[in-house]
Simulated assay, not measured.
Amino acid sequence: MATSHSIVTIVGSLRKESFTLKIAHALAKLAPASLKLQVTTLHDISFFNQDLEATPPADWLAFRDKLQASNGVLFVTPEYNRSIPGVLKNAIDVGSRPYGKSSFLGKPTGIISNSPGPLGGVSAAKHLQNILPGISGPILGQPEIHLNGVGDAFDERGELTKESLQKVLQQYLEAYAAFVERFNR
């Protein structure tokens, strides 16, 4: 039987009905058997403050432990003002500290951006690609995935109904699963 790799799937939005959260849940349902996606919201992560590094808060430790126990990290993010949401940057700061001991290190990393608009959050994805080197593991470069027009992709229960989007997500997950397998042998 093939190994199932645990993947922390970080949702870069706090909104209860966010498209990003719906996409993360759809990914978890579509994931191949080799991946177990743990949808992780950022509601409970307090603000990073370097003054607290000597005695980090319990929420920081729990987030870091979750990352360290995983086989990979998948970021699912909207775009806010041509960048990533502040809550996502905060989580990256918490997870990447203390200096030189990033909990993201060595974890195969995937990035999925989204927007109800036409650009699909491409600026947010590019900012993550700028932030993560040096504090993360290898980043899946191809295929890139920037989901546009996601506003009408879900029904009233939050279920993915757009077949074309489902196909794109499945293709990405297949590529990401192969990427994760390469680095977890």
Rank of each mutant, 00 (worst) to 15 (best):
F104D: 11
S136V: 12
P98C: 03
V87K: 06
E144V: 13
L88G: 06
P32K: 00
I131H: 07
A33P: 11
T41G: 13
I23K: 12
K101S: 14
A62K: 15
S102N: 10
L74E: 05
D93H: 10
P57Q: 05
R97M: 07
K29N: 15
Q50W: 05
I84W: 06
K107T: 13
I45E: 04
P85M: 09
A124H: 12
Q129I: 09
G110T: 01
V122G: 02
Q68W: 06
G95I: 01
I111Q: 01
L88H: 07
L61A: 11
N71H: 15
A69E: 14
P118L: 10
V73C: 13
G110C: 04
I131F: 13
K89F: 11
A69S: 14
L35F: 06
P85Q: 08
L42G: 14
A124N: 10
G137W: 07
E53K: 05
G120R: 03
R97P: 06
R97Y: 08
P108R: 02
V76L: 09
N49S: 11
F48H: 04
T109F: 10
Q142M: 07
I23Q: 13
S136M: 07
E144T: 14
I139F: 00
Y99I: 12
Y99H: 14
G121V: 01
G137Q: 09
P85L: 09
T41R: 15
S123E: 03
A124C: 08
I23L: 14
V39S: 01
K126I: 01
L147P: 00
S102G: 12
R82C: 04
N71Y: 06
F75I: 12
E79W: 00
P143E: 00
L74P: 07
L35M: 09
A24T: 01
G72Q: 03
A54E: 14
T55V: 13
Y99Q: 13
L147H: 00
L27D: 02
G117F: 00
Q129D: 10
L119A: 11
F48I: 04
L37P: 01
N71S: 12
P56C: 06
G120C: 02
S70F: 06
S123P: 00
S136E: 06
F75S: 12
K36E: 14
L35K: 02
S123K: 10
L119G: 02
D51T: 00
I145Q: 02
L128Y: 13
G86K: 13
A28D: 02
D65T: 14
